[in-house]
Design a protein around this nucleic acid. Sequence first.
DNA 1: AACACGGGGAC
DNA 2: GTCCCAGTGTT
Length: 348
Amino acid sequence: MSFSNELLKWYQQNKRDLPWRHTSNPYIIWLSEIILQQTRVEQGLPYFQRFLEQYPDVLSFAAAAEDDILKLWQGLGYYSRGRNMLKTARTVVDNYNGSFPQKYDDLIKLKGIGEYTATAIASFSANEAKAVVDGNVYRVLARYFGIDEPINSPKGKKLFQQTANELLNKQQPGLHNQAMMEFGAMLCKPKNPACGICPVREGCYAFLHNAVNSLPVKLNKVKVRDRYFNYFLVTDGDNILMNKRDDKDIWANMYDLPLVETDTLLTPEELFYLPMVKEIFGTDIKLVEILPLKKHILTHQRLHVRLIILNNQPVKLKEQYFFTPIENLQKLALPKIVFIFLKNIFNL
DNA sequence: AACACGGGGAC
DNA sequence: GTCCCAGTGTT
């Protein structure tokens, strides 16, 4: 029995019942695929449900405001996905008459849809015969065929895509693709794969050569940068001073508090002496409290975040600053760490 | 080719 | 702590 047939048999018996597997609607599949980029199914599932309820079709999605999309995306990370979805939804309405494309060549042109996602949508919704290659597929192929080429080198990427294409079941590409990924996620896991119950282990290079833990090979460990975020909490009656972030840094276009970033951890005295701080709050700082430093880990950054509560009014409002009612915080898209601070203070 | 972009869960 | 998740866009 061929690898593909064993795989499909395993899939029919072991697949999870996931909502996006009950449809061939490319809009719904697109929604699920974007949400699941670099995101585990369990984490993305509730977001998928909320998005589908709020925006049942591409027309309603295209009509949304960016603030509303980001708010619904809050806590999921990689927020450019949400912003790109809005662009793509509007492109689909404008250029495709609201009918979501199903062909790879159309999909790949849309914002936020890369090689993987275009293949996934095309094969799941219309059985286009292309092989998906995601993190799961890299792992399954590297182990089964004993490929030690790094999965994140250009050469490796080509090799794995080619291998996946040759393995693809051309009769049922959609099913085959889903089966490959489910197999990688459920059985051929990164740590402690279930080789004991694996239906294809007799043909698996890694199993036969005791190389399961050394495959796949991946290069380039990410460098992590330390950043120190000093947030200032300033209120005026029932209003709170907020900041809208620009589109350059992390958390683009989302909302946080007035922020002074430093290279190192400063004492309050050093901090209050900074020109930036004096410019915004003057020289007479009325400190109420400094909440303890919280560490917030991102992929490339370690954020050291603290909240400084002042009894000052700003002497100068920067352009991106604005006062808003505290109850309105519920409606703003806030980075996780900012949300946690504010939640603890205001019982949001 | 290298880097930026979040947050969470498993070990 | 480390790894990595149904990756993509920018430089």
